[in-house]
Design a protein around this nucleic acid. Structure first.
Lengths: 160, 160
DNA sequence: CTCCTTGCAAATTGTTTGCATACCT
DNA sequence: AGGTATGCAAACAATTTGCAAGGAG
């Protein structure tokens, strides 16, 4: 049912711009919605969609992601592992979570979502002091997850 | 004189690891130190160093940057413009500014450094609630700089 | 003298683009 | 019908890697 809403919104936005509603576009967005929190690469999304629509090409996935990005239906994140990742747009997420951050483990690479509303005041401050109008933000914390902290492996980070 | 300190630290760290002190390594670090706040790409750094050391190759710059990164002498930032950028490590910066963020203009692409100590409390909170030990963080604010806000151009962002 | 480091060129990898065909509306 | 979208393959761009020659300790 959630999905229906997202799909409807997609169709609306496409028609608004005179663009067409295609299976590929619906499926890419739906894949992201169903794997909220998965931080998928374009390639992963392509594979996933392929299960339902085998003919899809990677180029189409890239083009679609760019389109969805422009429409603010998906968000892009970069975990510094060499490829860009995507997730369902925060505007679509149930609880209007504008502040969705990431904890990235330097040891095992795990990514832990972290929600918090802690930059509201900061954004205001920036508008005032820097004269910069903030539309969005991206926050990443690098460190060690609880599991890695218990293992030897975590020491690699310190002794390198 | 600042430079001397950085260079000394570099030499120390290299010797610690049994690695060698080379002109290339010294020059790359020095280029970053002298252009603090410039957010240079590997290519830009290579060109800059070339002025003093024309034989340097891009591959060496990449290898050196990775090395300096491991040693925490430089920081890496990604401004989502397709290439990774580097700056002198925050640990080396004069005023021990651990919190160095970036304001990125969605219209003209300009990057404005922004210093603020606003995540201290947040990090503590993460350690407690998520059991995640924070070593570092990266914060980016996307929006419109004051200049673009005055021009028509800024409207492109909204109307897309 | 030994082994680390470099420069060059070739190889990789993630992403974009050109084009003829297929598909929405 | 008419223009948009797609798939494929070729093109690109940033970064990495292999290797022989050069340089630091």
């Amino acid at each position: 049912m959630e999905q229906k809403n997202t799909e409807k919104l997609l169709k609306e936005k496409l028609r608004e711009k005179g663009l067409k509603v295609t299976q590929q576009r619906i499926l890419v967005l739906s894949a992201l919605e169903q794997n909220s929190g998965a931080h998928m690469t374009a390639e992963e999304i392509c594979e996933l969609v392929s299960q339902e629509y085998p003919e899809i090409g990677l180029a189409t996935v890239y083009r679609t992601l760019q389109l969805l990005l422009d429409m603010q239906l998906v968000d892009r994140i970069n975990l510094d592992d060499g490829c860009v990742r995507y997730e369902i747009g925060h505007l679509l997420k149930g609880s209007e979570k504008h502040n969705h951050h990431h904890l990235i483990c330097r040891s095992c690479g795990k990514v832990i979502p972290f929600d918090g509303d802690l930059l509201e005041g900061l954004e205001q401050h920036i508008e005032e002091t820097a004269g910069f109008h903030v539309l969005d933000h991206e926050v990443k914390f690098y460190g060690l997850c609880s599991e890695c902290m218990k293992t030897q492996k975590s020491m690699e980070v310190f002794t390198g």
